[in-house]
């Protein structure tokens, strides 16, 4: 009896510390988000006067009302939706087709193409701003959403391709061969058999590219100068004026900007979990 008592205490200690560590990690990871939310509902007049408190004594939605009705934020927000959405869609289509080719075909120059795509991932983006600006300017693509979409797509395609390729690699070649014998052309087999099976991969790629484009600041700042083509990360900066920073409104805008990303992940999370654990268990 003492023995079992002893082991159960040890077990509890083990699991207790286990959960404690997980809790510590989760708090560490989510605290900034909590702070974002807290500041966004804190009235301006008590933001600096109350000191550091976990929750303000009064809360208000004023910051949200202001951001939604008085600022340009809804416009930036729409721009971001257009840019991130289009980038995610275009990149995923290109990555799916390229990834399939990498996964299934042996062709001349494949190694070189893969190497080139890897090389593009090597350099800090800052180095490329000037040449890209030089290229886009004469084409009339600076200060435009299309320009941003093109640049984001170009930068995301390599990684997205490798991601999609790994998903295609996980699907047996036999499946499309069976479909081709059953009466499909290769492309039909890809569309009817392989693509439905890679939905988790497609979701993961969409999610990855969407978030990358959604929160991108560097190019959005450098390539776009007018208000009309600004995305929300740039828009957030407009809450910083020469003399003050309007933290409450900035945080409210930040919370609003989280919504589409959250919604997006909510929609694809079923596939995402499948996708990230695909192949872990033998089917």
């Amino acid at each position: 009896m003492t023995l079992t008592g002893h082991t159960s205490t040890r077990k509890m200690l083990y699991w207790g510390s286990h959960y404690l560590m997980i809790a510590a990690f989760v708090i560490f990871a989510l605290f900034p988000l909590y702070w974002l939310l807290k500041v966004s509902v804190t009235p301006n007049d008590i933001l600096y006067t109350e000191g550091v408190r976990m929750w303000p004594s009064r809360t208000t939605w004023d910051n949200y009302t202001f951001v939604l009705t008085q600022s340009n934020f809804p416009h930036y927000f729409m721009n971001s939706v257009i840019v991130a959405g289009t980038t995610a869609a275009v990149t995923t289509v290109i990555a799916a087709l390229t990834g399939y080719a990498f996964s299934r075909f042996a062709f001349r120059g494949k190694v070189i193409i893969v190497a080139l795509m890897l090389i593009t991932q090597m350099f800090p983006l800052v180095m490329l701003i000037a040449p890209i600006f030089k290229i886009l300017a004469p084409l009339g693509l600076t200060d435009s959403l299309t320009g941003l979409i093109i640049v984001y797509t170009a930068f995301n395609v390599p990684f997205a391709t490798f991601l999609m390729q790994s998903f295609f690699d996980g699907i047996p070649k036999d499946l499309e061969e069976a479909a081709m014998i059953d009466g499909n052309t290769r492309f039909e087999a890809f569309r009817a058999i392989i693509l439905p099976l890679t939905l988790p991969g497609v979701a993961a790629t969409l999610g990855f590219v969407f978030t990358a484009a959604w929160s991108e600041l560097l190019f959005a700042l450098m390539l776009v100068s007018s208000e009309s083509a600004s995305t929300f990360p740039v828009g957030l900066l407009s809450f910083v004026s020469k003399f003050s920073v309007d933290f409450g409104q900035m945080m409210a805008a930040g919370v609003l900007a989280l919504i589409p990303a959250c919604l997006f992940f909510l929609l694809i999370q079923r596939y995402l979990v499948q996708g990230l654990t695909a192949g872990a268990v033998k089917g």
Binding site: P172, D174, L175, E177, A178, A179, I181, L197
Partner: peptide
């Protein structure tokens, strides 16, 4: 054709 892996559409 019948494949070794059966190749059934999952």
């Amino acid at each position: 054709m019948v494949f070794q892996s059966y190749a059934l559409y999952p």
